[in-house]
């Protein structure tokens, strides 16, 4: 295991007088796949950016045993919104990502990509970045980030814009990678929580839960998100799903506001 650990003590991030993140104590890794989940605007991205020293913070953040600024050579970071020059070729993007890296252990990327059926992304090298689909762009950046041979991979919503098949491939890839590299990622796709070693739920800037996904109660999720959630067990793995069935029932059985005549029923 060459991944390195993340340690946060009394972290406080403010912007124009408003507290964005306030975390008393959080330790992740070494190694493993760590989910940061929470509603929009809860402070997930701010928390991630503090790991790279990209926001001004108070308190202690230690990555690979040092302050974030000095650890950047070991970190790969993929932001949520991709702003890569559309004219740049994929090979050039890969080269640019390598800047300033202090390589850890070399991963066998071909093998890892092969495991999850993504070896084809190697063939994109000569294409212009702007020509790729948003899924291909994200996969390309993840592979490029891994080329950097980091000890910590920080990914902000790596599953967004991906179709189901690619989501499973990416989460599978990150799972494989997390055997050797600590992976911290934010996501809204809580159905993939079974892949994670730990889940940290952020609510209004603070930690509402942090620990193994198996112990995250539906009641905590329901409190934070304000919707009904069901827990389903398939093949020994527990999945938390929004109770869409109930929403559909309520939505279509209740009288439509302002509508006249008989209420419609879902068929």
């Amino acid at each position: 295991m060459t991944g390195c650990s993340v340690e946060i003590r009394s972290l406080r991030v403010e912007a124009s007088g408003k507290v964005l993140v306030e975390v008393e104590d959080l330790s992740l890794g070494p190694g493993g796949l760590h989910f940061i989940i929470g509603p929009n605007g809860a402070g997930k991205t701010t928390l991630l950016r503090s790991l790279l020293g990209l926001v001004r913070y108070q308190g202690v953040v230690k990555v690979c045993g040092t302050v974030p600024r000095d650890a950047r050579g070991w970190i790969s970071y993929i932001p949520a919104s991709i702003m890569v020059d559309p004219w740049a070729k994929v090979g050039e993007v890969r080269r640019a990502v390598l800047y300033g890296s202090r390589p850890g252990e070399r991963l066998n990327m071909d093998q890892l990509l092969g495991y999850v059926g993504l070896e084809w992304i190697r063939s994109l090298t000569g294409r212009r970045f702007g020509e790729l689909s948003s899924g291909e762009q994200r996969l390309t950046l993840i592979a490029a980030a891994m080329n950097r041979m980091p000890k910590l991979l920080v990914a902000d919503e790596p599953l967004s814009f991906l179709d189901m098949a690619n989501q499973i491939r990416v989460i599978g890839l990150l799972r494989e990678v997390s055997r050797q590299v600590t992976v911290v990622m934010t996501t809204h796709e809580i159905m993939y929580m079974g892949y994670a070693d730990t889940v940290t739920l952020i609510h209004k800037g603070s930690i509402a839960y942090s620990g193994p996904p198996s112990r995250l109660n539906t009641s905590i999720i329901e409190d934070v998100y304000g919707i009904k959630v069901m827990s389903v067990e398939i093949g020994g793995v527990r999945f938390l799903l929004p109770d869409t069935a109930q929403v559909v029932r309520e939505r279509f059985t209740a009288p439509v506001r302002g509508a006249r005549g008989s209420t419609q029923r879902s068929s």
């Binding site: 790279l52 970071y77 993929i78 919104s81 702003m83 890569v84 020059d85 990502v97 890296s101």
Partner: peptide, 10 residues
Amino acid sequence: ILGEEMSRGI
């Protein structure tokens, strides 16, 4: 070419 956020990240 990576965009400001990624450049800062490395």
